[in-house]
Design a protein around this nucleic acid. Structure first.
Lengths: 344, 344
DNA sequence: CTGTTAGCGCTTTCAT
DNA sequence: ATGAAAGCGCTAACAG
C-alpha cells in the first residue's frame, strides 16, 4: 500500500537534471539557474517530495536532533520545563527526542543507548540518576562512555566523578527566601516535608533549611523533617505523620508543590485551615500552585530561563564553542495565600 | 573533541572478519561460528560500539519510530495518554517522536513534514486540527498527502473527507452517564460548561447533553451552556458568568476536569459550597480530579486502553495487517464528592 | 551553473 | 560459515 518512495533521483530524471542539482535547490547551498530551479521545484511539488533526513543525517554525521531524558512527563515540573526547552531548541533548528523513563533506571540505560544509536547531537538529562546524592558507579561509567561521543547537559543534577556541564536552579537561595519569609512572619516552629533522603535536590534543600535555622539560633525539631517522595500522595502521607504529633510546627516548607498540595489536602481534611492554622509553602511554581486553594506561596524555577540556558549550553557544546561548566539560574519568590503571620 | 565514530568496519578489521559477519552478530539474522562471535563481541565491547541506526533505517526503509502530534504536553490528558501509548509502543519495539505543537496550527504542519522527512513508520494524531468540527480543507489535503505515505491513527478526532483510522473515547455514553447521575440525584436545572463551539469533542458532548435532557422532557436553559475553552482559567471565566445570573443551575457538567476545577474554584471563592450548593462533574479523570477538593466526580478516559489500542491499530497498519476502521473505547464513571442529591 | 562520482554506515544477496 | 559487493538516499568535492 505504501507508495514507493520518491527520491531525489526520480525528481532529477523528471526534471532532466542531475541529482546533484536537485540537492542544490533543496539545500540552497549553491547557485542554480532560476529557470532550472523553477523546473525542479515544480517537480518536487508535483510529487510532494520530501528529502529523506535519515540519508541526510548519515552523510552529515549530525542529525540536528537533541535527546531529552526525564523521569516523568506527567509531572508538571518536567512537562513545563520540556515545553520551554523544546521550543527553544526548535528555534535553533533542532528537533527533539523525548525519553520518558517512568522513574526506571533500566529505562534510563536503554534510552541512553538508543539515543546514541539514533545519533542525536546532544542530550539534556533531567532527574533520575543524576539526582542521586551517592552516585552509582556503574551508571557513572555508562554516562561517561556516552559523553565521550555526545555532549550532555545535566539540569538540576550531578554525578560524582562525572565532569558534566551543568545548568541548575539555585535551590539554596530559593529555600533561603522561603525560610526568611516564614521567619519574618514570626514562625519559629518550622518543619520541612517531602522529598527523599539521598536525592540531591532534597538533601540540598533540607540542609539549607537546617543551616539557616541554626544560623538564626532556632533549633529544628527532627520530628518535623519528614519525607517519602515527591508526589501529592507522599505529601498526604507525611502530613498524616505530622498530625500524630502532640507538638506540631506552625509552618512547613515542602520539597515541591506537589507535596505541598498533599499536605494542604490532609490538613484541611483534618479540620485545620491553611494558612490560619498552619502556613505551607512549596517549591517549583507549577501551574497548579496558583490554582490549588488557597493558592500556594512558592519559589519559581523560572522554567524558560532554565530550559533555554540548558539548550544554549548544549548547542554551544555541539558546535564545539565555549560553554560555562556550571550555570546557576536564580529563583524568584511567588507570594500567594498559603502562609500568614503567626500570632499566638 | 567528539571521538571519531567507530564503525562496523573498524570492528571487522580488529576482529579479522568481514563487516558482513559483524553485521550478522549484530542482527542475529544468520549463523556465525560461536568462536567468531566471541571474538567480535569482545571487540564490540572493547569499543562500546553501537550500530548507527540511521544507516540501518536507511537500508531497511523503516525507522521503527512512531511520531506523536499533540497540542499540549502540559495538559494531563495528553501527558497521561502519551505515557500509556509510549510504553506500549516501546514494548512493540518502537521508539517515539513527540511533537508538541503548543496549540499552533503552523507547528502542526511543520511537525507533520518533519515526521515525513524523519521517515517515521506511523503517526498518532491527538487533538489540534482533527478536533475541528468544520475541517479546514487545506489541512485535510495536507493530511491526505501524508497518509499516502505513512499510516496515521486519529485519537478522539476526525476530519471531513479524510478517511483515517480512528480510535476514540465513547464521549456520548460518558456524558449520558453523567446526565443520568445528576438526574437520579434529582437535579433538573443542569448546565454545561466549558469547551469551545466548533471543536468536535465539545460539540459531541453538548449535543449529547441537550438531547438527553430533551428526551427526559427537561428544557435546557441556554444561559447555562457556556464555554470558552479547556483550561482552568476558562472554567473560572464561565463560572463567573454563571454567577451573574439570577436563575442558576443546581448542577453543571463540565467539558473536562480542568474546567471543573476552575468552576469549583470560583464558586468556592464566591461563597458557594460544592457539592452542597452546586454539584459539579468533570470529564477525563485526570490525576487531579481525585486531589482537587472536594474530589471531582468524572468520567474516566481509560487511558491505557485508549493508548494501547491506538498503538495496536497503528502497528497493524504499519505491518499491513487488518485494522478496525474505528474503535470506540468505553468510559467509566468515577464517583467522588463533587455532587450530591438535590433537595429544595 | 551543472554533471559525475564517491561515500556516509549498515545489511543482504550471492558466491565460495 | 564467511567474504565481496551493491545499494538504501543524500551531499559535497571535483571537473568542466
Amino acid at each position: 500500500m505504501k507508495k514507493e518512495n520518491v527520491t531525489i533521483y526520480d525528481i532529477a530524471k523528471e526534471a532532466n537534471v542531475s541529482p546533484a542539482t536537485v540537492s542544490r535547490v533543496l539545500t540552497g547551498n549553491a547557485k542554480v539557474r532560476p529557470q532550472t530551479t523553477r523546473k525542479i521545484v515544480d517537480v518536487i511539488e508535483k510529487y510532494n517530495f520530501r528529502p529523506n533526513s535519515l540519508a541526510r543525517s548519515l552523510f552529515h554525521k549530525q542529525s540536528k536532533t537533541i535527546g531529552f531524558i526525564l523521569p516523568d512527563i506527567n509531572h508538571p515540573f518536567f512537562s513545563t520545563l520540556v515545553q520551554s526547552s523544546e521550543a527553544h531548541a526548535l528555534e535553533l533548528g533542532y528537533t527533539t527526542f523525548l525519553c520518558n523513563t517512568r522513574n526506571n533506571s533500566e529505562n534510563e540505560s536503554k534510552y541512553l543507548q538508543s539515543l546514541v544509536e539514533k545519533q542525536v547531537d546532544g542530550i539534556i538529562y533531567l532527574g533520575g540518576r543524576i539526582n542521586d546524592t551517592d552516585t552509582d558507579q556503574e551508571y557513572a561509567e555508562e554516562m561517561k562512555t556516552v559523553m565521550e561521543r555526545i555532549p550532555v547537559v545535566f539540569v538540576n543534577g550531578q554525578m560524582n566523578g562525572v565532569d558534566a556541564h551543568i545548568v541548575r536552579t539555585d535551590e539554596e537561595s530559593g529555600i533561603e527566601k522561603l525560610v526568611e519569609l516564614l521567619l519574618n512572619l514570626n514562625h519559629k516552629k518550622i518543619g520541612f516535608l517531602g522529598g527523599k533522603e539521598g536525592i540531591s535536590s532534597t538533601d540540598v534543600k533540607r540542609n539549607t533549611f537546617v543551616k539557616m535555622m541554626e544560623n538564626k539560633g532556632i533549633s529544628v525539631n527532627e520530628d518535623w523533617v519528614l519525607g517519602t517522595g515527591f508526589s501529592i500522595e507522599s505529601g498526604e502521607e507525611v502530613a498524616g505523620q505530622l498530625l500524630n504529633l502532640k507538638d506540631r510546627p506552625t509552618a512547613v516548607i515542602c520539597a515541591n508543590d506537589f507535596v505541598a498540595i498533599g499536605v494542604i489536602k490532609v490538613l484541611t481534611k483534618f479540620g485545620l485551615t491553611v494558612p490560619d492554622d498552619v502556613s505551607v509553602v512549596g517549591f517549583d511554581d507549577i501551574y497548579l500552585a496558583q490554582h490549588f486553594p488557597p493558592g500556594i506561596t512558592t519559589v519559581s524555577q523560572n522554567y524558560d530561563h532554565l530550559g533555554q540556558t540548558a539548550i544554549n549550553v548544549l548547542v554551544n557544546l555541539i558546535n564545539e564553542k565555549e560553554a560555562e561548566r556550571e550555570t546557576v539560574i536564580p529563583t524568584s519568590l511567588v507570594l500567594r495565600d498559603s502562609c500568614r503571620i503567626f500570632s499566638e
